[in-house]
Design a protein around this nucleic acid. Structure first.
Lengths: 164, 164
DNA sequence: CAAGATTGAAGTATCAATCTTT
DNA sequence: AAAGATTGATACTTCAATCTTG
């Protein structure tokens, strides 16, 4: 007595899969065209910008956007090369470093955020009815709860909240 | 008179974003744990398996799963090294090559497909009501139509249909 | 030794250049 | 020249090893 996957379900999964993929692709392309940065750059910049002091410890960045520390480090190095962020020594704890926005980084993140907001509105919010938005919220939470049961703790929703 | 993004919308976007990310991560991890392959491997294997002759031209693979030809070529080379697929000369058109499943590739794809089907059922189908499934289908199609207007032709839904 | 972070190597993705056949 | 595909260079991601400070 095993549950069978229906044709309708297969179609739904396929459509949902293609939608996710195309949405991601499109958002990345717009960001690159309008702000000259990648999705990875954007996540870092937004995380820094969302902090009131415009700077974070390297480890915090990883926690916020759900990356491994080595990935954060490599990414920061590349962005530092391009003048978007800068590393600073950490007085409190000499093991750590602060990562902060440069003036150029601040300029770029503002344009990028505007671009992202417009894109999400255009492709997403403007297309959906209120009821659809509500149902999608319910669906997302249900799936997340199923994937992330209390037992195992992966990246939580809050940790990624800065990456709008 | 510009449309404002509400707090509820920001929450929805964030939740939806995290759900997409976690779902993708979880599916990849299961695939790796259960079948020993990556998501990229899986897309290639399923595309080949879905064809009645169990083989495709390199270019067809790219069209089906929406990859650039160079990515397909590199990926095929790595999978050939691991004995999952094999290249064969193409009689019809000496410029092209056939890519086919090896016996090992066939064995692996069967296990992987079972794993993927179970995972999608567990995290997705089993969690959603019929109404929610219906609404999600509508949402996905709406977003896709907005992203992919008749004007520009990117990867179409059909082209990715093999990548279940 | 544990915590915070960087480094180097191996695997993967993307872009442009190339090669062969049509 | 265009089509089908591969190659090489560069960029990004992941993993394990390392280094320094607590």
């Amino acid at each position: 007595m095993e549950a069978e996957t229906t044709d309708a379900e297969r179609d739904l999964w396929r459509t949902f899969y293609v939608m996710r993929r195309q949405l991601e692709l499109t958002l990345e392309r717009r960001l690159h065209a309008d702000a000259g940065i990648s999705g990875a750059d954007y996540e870092i910049l937004i995380a820094l910008f969302s902090d009131s002091s415009r700077r974070l410890r390297a480890g915090q960045i990883g926690d916020i956007i759900g990356w491994e520390k080595s990935r954060v480090s490599h990414q920061i190095s590349r962005m530092e090369q391009r003048g978007l962020v800068k590393r600073e020594e950490c007085g409190d704890d000499a093991r750590g470093v602060w990562v902060g926005l440069t003036p150029e980084g601040s300029r770029v993140v503002l344009g990028a955020a505007r671009d992202r907001r417009d894109a999400v509105r255009q492709y997403f919010f403007d297309v959906l009815s209120d009821e659809e938005k509500e149902v999608l919220g319910t669906i997302s939470r249900k799936v997340l709860d199923t994937i992330n049961p209390p037992i195992c703790n992966e990246v939580s929703a809050d940790e990624v909240s800065a990456a709008v």
